[in-house]
Measured scan of single mutants.
Amino acid sequence: LAALHAEGPLAGLPVTRSDARVLIFNEWEERKKSEPWLRLDMSDKAIFRRYPHLR
């Protein structure tokens, strides 16, 4: 499970980098069924690119 911001401008976004990794992994797991070539990237760089508020 990932903790998400409940309200405000960040509502629905992950609270920590660990939470972001959970979301990225879950999405990758779903997408790899139809796109088996996808690589999993959970590096800090990938997290910041996707969720800049975690910098």
Rank of each mutant, 00 (worst) to 15 (best):
L1K: 14
L1Y: 12
A2T: 07
A2Y: 07
A2H: 07
A2Q: 08
A2S: 07
A3P: 04
A3C: 15
A3K: 15
A3N: 15
L4V: 13
L4P: 04
L4Q: 06
L4D: 04
L4I: 11
L4T: 10
H5C: 06
H5V: 05
H5A: 04
H5T: 04
H5R: 03
H5N: 08
A6N: 12
A6D: 10
A6G: 12
A6H: 12
A6P: 11
A6T: 14
E7I: 10
E7Y: 11
E7N: 12
E7L: 08
E7D: 14
E7G: 11
G8D: 04
G8H: 05
G8Q: 05
G8M: 04
G8T: 03
G8C: 06
P9S: 11
L10C: 10
L10H: 11
L10D: 04
A11Q: 13
A11H: 08
A11E: 09
A11V: 11
A11R: 13
A11T: 13
A11K: 14
G12I: 03
G12D: 04
G12M: 06
G12Y: 05
G12V: 03
G12A: 04
G12T: 04
G12F: 04
G12L: 04
L13T: 03
L13Q: 08
L13D: 02
L13S: 03
L13I: 03
L13M: 09
P14Q: 00
P14E: 00
P14F: 02
P14D: 01
P14K: 01
P14W: 00
V15R: 11
V15F: 06
T16H: 08
T16G: 08
T16R: 09
T16C: 10
T16V: 01
T16D: 06
T16F: 04
R17A: 14
R17F: 13
R17E: 08
S18H: 15
S18K: 15
S18V: 10
D19I: 03
D19E: 06
D19W: 03
D19V: 03
A20H: 00
A20W: 01
A20F: 08
R21V: 07
V22G: 03
V22S: 08
V22H: 09
V22N: 08
L23P: 00
L23C: 07
L23A: 05
L23M: 09
I24D: 00
I24K: 00
I24P: 00
I24A: 02
I24V: 07
I24L: 11
I24M: 13
F25G: 02
F25H: 08
F25I: 15
E27N: 05
E27R: 03
E27M: 07
E27L: 07
E27S: 05
E27D: 12
E27P: 00
W28R: 01
W28K: 00
W28G: 01
W28N: 01
W28L: 02
E29W: 15
E29I: 15
E29M: 15
E30R: 13
E30H: 10
E30S: 12
E30T: 11
E30L: 11
E30P: 02
E30W: 12
E30D: 10
R31G: 06
R31A: 09
R31K: 11
R31T: 04
R31Y: 04
K32I: 13
K32V: 15
K32D: 03
K33H: 10
K33G: 09
K33C: 10
S34F: 12
S34C: 14
S34T: 15
E35Y: 09
E35D: 11
E35P: 05
E35F: 09
P36W: 08
P36V: 04
P36C: 07
W37N: 15
W37G: 14
W37H: 14
W37A: 09
W37P: 04
L38Q: 07
L38A: 12
R39M: 13
R39K: 15
R39N: 12
R39P: 14
R39S: 12
R39T: 14
R39L: 11
L40T: 02
L40S: 01
L40K: 02
D41Y: 05
D41C: 07
D41P: 01
D41I: 06
D41V: 04
M42I: 14
M42S: 05
S43G: 06
S43W: 02
D44M: 10
D44P: 08
D44H: 07
K45H: 13
K45N: 13
A46V: 10
A46N: 10
A46M: 08
A46S: 09
A46K: 08
A46P: 02
A46T: 10
I47D: 01
I47E: 00
F48K: 08
F48R: 07
R49N: 14
R49L: 15
R49F: 12
R49T: 14
R49V: 14
R49P: 02
R50C: 08
R50A: 09
R50H: 07
Y51S: 00
Y51K: 00
P52E: 04
P52N: 02
P52D: 02
P52V: 02
H53D: 01
H53E: 01
H53C: 01
H53F: 02
L54E: 00
L54V: 01
L54Y: 00
L54A: 00
R55G: 10
R55T: 10
R55V: 13
R55N: 11
R55W: 11
R55E: 11
